[in-house]
Design a protein around this nucleic acid. Sequence first.
DNA 1: AATTAAAATGCAATCGATTGTATTTTTGTT
DNA 2: AACAAAAATACAATCGATTGCATTTTAATT
Lengths: 339, 339
Amino acid sequence: MNNKPTIHDIAKALGINSSTVSRALNDSPRVTQKTKNKILAMAQELGYQRNVLASNLRKNVTHTIGVIVPRISRHFFSSAIQGIEETAYAAGYNVIICQSLEQLEREQSIVNGLVEKRVDGLLISISMETLNYDHLDLVAKNKIPLVFFDRHCNIPNYSSVIIDDFKGGFEATEHLIKQGCKHIAHFSGPKNLEIYKNRLAGYKAALKKHKLTFNESYVITSRLMEDDGYANMKVLIDKNIEIDAVFSANDMAAIGAIKFLKQQKIAIPEDIAIVGFSNEPISTAIEPSLTTIDQSGLTIGKTATNLLLNYIEEKSIPEKGKTVIIDTSLLERNSSKKE
Amino acid sequence: MNNKPTIHDIAKALGINSSTVSRALNDSPRVTQKTKNKILAMAQELGYQRNVLASNLRKNVTHTIGVIVPRISRHFFSSAIQGIEETAYAAGYNVIICQSLEQLEREQSIVNGLVEKRVDGLLISISMETLNYDHLDLVAKNKIPLVFFDRHCNIPNYSSVIIDDFKGGFEATEHLIKQGCKHIAHFSGPKNLEIYKNRLAGYKAALKKHKLTFNESYVITSRLMEDDGYANMKVLIDKNIEIDAVFSANDMAAIGAIKFLKQQKIAIPEDIAIVGFSNEPISTAIEPSLTTIDQSGLTIGKTATNLLLNYIEEKSIPEKGKTVIIDTSLLERNSSKKE
DNA sequence: AATTAAAATGCAATCGATTGTATTTTTGTT
DNA sequence: AACAAAAATACAATCGATTGCATTTTAATT
């Protein structure tokens, strides 16, 4: 039986019109308190629950925001999602989470599905494969507000909430230089992602400032999984490339490198110092503990959601998106402190 | 302008009826291929997208499943969510994620909201505060299929996907006994959660099997955060309670204990051996690496979702829920291996 | 008491797709 | 060519809430 009570049932039971019931339930000033009380009591009695589907259809909203991340289980993303969910929930919005799994095709189909679902807004951290942005045209065409977080695109119309990757890369590298390192390798990620471009740029800038020459062969690009870090480190050692430090663009690859070095009994930080990026929880547990750049997913998620909710409630998408930069800080730990 | 084309626009443009358009778009056999082609072409031309809201209202489905977890960013839950999302996505369902943040009140209000949203099914891992289940009556009343995962309730009507906590607790403890430990403490979690009751029961059973006496004062109950583990360990040491091992009901508390012991320069595992539970990624990074019980969130998430999807598609909720038990295994690492 | 303004409620269309039934068109048979 | 059967399409109600406009009721004023 699908006999969930509707406003019509309430109306009939009270001998009044369903429009009045609707208004009463929405606490409209057009209904007397007396009638409201009667209606509320009857709603309670019948166990009425608003049919959100019908309401949403009529009002053409969903109070739902779509979130696309590469992978939920990555710590950074799950903390960002935590921040997103908390902020959205407080504002009365639900969150639909989808994973691109780093695949462009999946990302495209997800965007399509979410637009079809009529989400009120979108938060996206793009996949490593995302080189073209045609799938976002649909979002623009439907005037759905969109905010990038962390992994953003360089499209002027959209807003982004990101961290200062350049500064992070710069500080990480400068820190190594101050420890006396002169030959600093860099593990970088896919070049279509701005974050990795910027971390690399920060690295280069720090070298330049301290008059160290940039050496192309010191930069190894990979997908920055733990295994990649391990393999990268192995390549550097096997090829006998003379380095005394590594700045890895994320923690996982740094951990991989540390594991390889420990196996080879190469001293960290004495022989090779390591700095990561992101402050994953694992970075405090590994030995030596990993120096890294703190990047609060929670803060990024909250900020991005607040920005998006603003656009949604104002019902206007700005001509020119703005970029909010969340500050980062260097956490000095044992993998790089030489004194 | 809200001029998204509807089936009526397509119908008008072709001089046919919108019901035919609807059937064509749903690939009904009641429409000729010729007409279908015309309609599909026109839909393409107008940039038509189905209004899922209207469709859902009419069909009284949402193709959405609601997921409630205590906290997204906990690694176990984020992997479970990853499994849930992947399975749901493959079946054409979206996933709304909500966090109880371990608060009963929040859990209640979330359940309410999701029922109101007319989710097709629910996956829940209950909060530490959840002692009464009245809020689930609404779910039953609305005949919404519900599957618990990991943190389940002992309500016979519902299905659960859980791991064999008893066996895990038993194996963890027996492993310590086989290493020669005779005074094994246990860090337990809130007693309203079946998982902690069962892990404790496994612990007791192993003691009994090996003729070790169970000592009430060896069991410390807390919320099992890292800080709790640290504090628990401190209490044991400060009180001079003579123990040679700890079985912690989760990894985080075990890590806290390790950190305290390392500070006190107490040797692990020689003086005190440690076993955790869950195989968090951090457990391989800590030194000594943590012996633990492997518990695949991904598998649990996938299994629970498949079970739920079955109930949803069969449109029947079984009288008696079933319990699926996912196997666990002991991962012997350095925090407990004495030889 | 009559009049009018204001407040409360009712009416009916609407959001867009779906679907049971009715009608029209096509196809096949003699 | 006539007719029945089958196939294709059209009609209209429906899902449940919302909302502009119309009508009724109440309150205020003279």
